[in-house]
Amino acid sequence: MTLMNDKVHAYKDQMGELSDVLPAVVKSYHEFTGECFQAGAIDAKTKQLIALGIGLFANNEVCTFYHVEEARAKGATDQEIMETVAVAGAVGGGHALSQGAMRVQKALH
């Protein structure tokens, strides 16, 4: 848990430093993402689980830790979080397999 907290805190610290250099960009980013993660047709917990899956697929360590933390804060259970991991694994495996089936086989012919 310490590694997760350290990484998330380091990210937040670095965003603070970036805000000193590019305040309008950071402000706009936070406004945009804040709006995107508001509950709407999709509830806030599900949006955090979606973001976690994308973070895993993108191999983004900070996003993975951050969105686990946020999903839990929104009421996600460990089971829901781990099922999100499984879905991200299925998408990642499907991505590689579909590209192999399409691109690689095409290249071979």
Rank of each mutant, 00 (worst) to 15 (best):
M1F: 13
T2F: 11
K7P: 11
H9L: 14
H9A: 12
K12T: 15
D13G: 05
M15S: 08
E17L: 13
V21C: 04
V21H: 10
P23D: 03
P23F: 06
A24S: 09
V25Q: 07
K27D: 09
S28V: 01
F32R: 02
G34C: 05
C36P: 04
G40Q: 09
D43W: 04
D43I: 05
D43L: 01
K47T: 08
Q48E: 15
Q48Y: 02
A51R: 01
G53C: 05
I54H: 02
F57D: 03
A58V: 04
N59K: 15
E61L: 12
V62A: 09
V62N: 00
T64M: 10
H67Y: 12
V68K: 03
V68H: 05
E70M: 15
A71P: 06
K74I: 02
G75W: 00
T77L: 08
D78I: 12
D78S: 09
E80H: 02
I81T: 05
T84G: 06
T84P: 10
A88F: 03
A90R: 07
A90G: 04
G93L: 15
G93Y: 13
H95R: 14
L97Q: 13
L97C: 12
S98A: 15
M102G: 03
M102R: 12
R103N: 13
K106E: 09
H109C: 02
